[in-house]
Amino acid sequence: MLLIECPWCGERDQTEFTCHGEAHIVRPKNPDELTDEQWGDYVFFRSNPKGLHKERWVHDHGCRRWFNVVRHTHTDIVYGSYKPGEPAPEVSEEALKGGKK
């Protein structure tokens, strides 16, 4: 079980949320001019890192708002949440090495 911090409601059980994949995927402004490969890249391909991952979550059993979470895909540690439009929180080397938030 993960505790996810909603920027509005505070720390809540994971079961109140849904994760909707990688954050900050920008839709191309000129889809007509893209090759199939470029469009496929935008639609299907994600970075899938082993490490820090910025992802979109929605607090659907709570305030129903969308926000972003920085999570480590290997340790599953959640390093922080931020509202849409806000910069992602910095994660220090020590925090990563220590395996703690």
Binding site: E16, G62, C63
Partner: peptide, 10 residues
């Protein structure tokens, strides 16, 4: 007040 879930109900 808070939104949450109880069993399977929102």
């Amino acid at each position: 007040v808070s939104g949450t879930r109880y069993a399977n109900a929102t």
